[in-house]
Amino acid sequence: MNHTHIWVIIVEHTLQTSIHRHQMKDTIALFTTCMVDQMFPEIGVAAVNLLRRTGRKVAFPPEQTCCGQPFYNSGFWPQARDLAKATIQALEPYHAVVIPGGSCAGMIRVEYAHLFEDQPDWRVRAAALGAKTFEFSEYLAANLTLSPKSEQPTPVTYHDSCHMLRVAGIKHQPRQLLEQVGCQITEMRESERCCGFGGLFSVKMQPVSKAMTAEKLSQANQTATGLLVTSDPGCLMQMRANQPLGDPLRIDHLAVVLEELAA
């Protein structure tokens, strides 16, 4: 092997990695959340279609799985740490991370710092990731203005997911986007009331969880809008699972509703 050949390999490699890095810098990573990936892929599809309208490239880092929240919330912190580390590794090369799940966004942005309280190196990496992690509606509202497809207003009501609201601190963006696509929002008596999911809480404390969901759904039905929108796949699953038979209320994720109604 001659010297020239080695130099070509080195130059090529350097060029390729810097091109790759450059591309990553301009690329939004979609962290679908495990639930959207496995149960509600249509939310991921809608999210990608809308995010592409910002002009940025959207990537799906294939190593992503679960952010660790279920284990974090049930007190299994070593297990949660493992998943958090894998998530950080999968997402940190990108320019920004967008998540169509409010509670997972809160997990990465706020709770990772608590999880890595005693591991300064990981705490720093978690903080760096947290700083460029956005919940879907938050990112979209800041980067795009949507317009309605139809002139006919669509009546909706919006459920604030607890962790998106109180941990990630996001309240007005989903409403702003819904209004941009022609939605007429009628608020529930308590839009900020928990839907009863709470992860494993819904299994461990099922009767209480179900009673909470019944209350939420009854408040949604009282708005007579017929469409209940949420930004969290967990809330979505919980509310759909506990809908009384024959209840005509449509419950859907913000991304799906926006894609459907946007011009």
């Binding site: 496995q38 892929p41 599809v45 294939p62 759909r240």
Partner: peptide
């Protein structure tokens, strides 16, 4: 089975299955 029969189904095709096509489109 404790109401689990009413849960939304796990999707036949996951998002990561669909992604390959979506990426090619892009």
């Amino acid at each position: 089975f404790n109401g689990f029969e009413n849960y939304p189904m796990v999707s036949r095709q996951s998002f990561r299955d669909l992604w390959k096509r979506m990426e090619a489109d892009d």
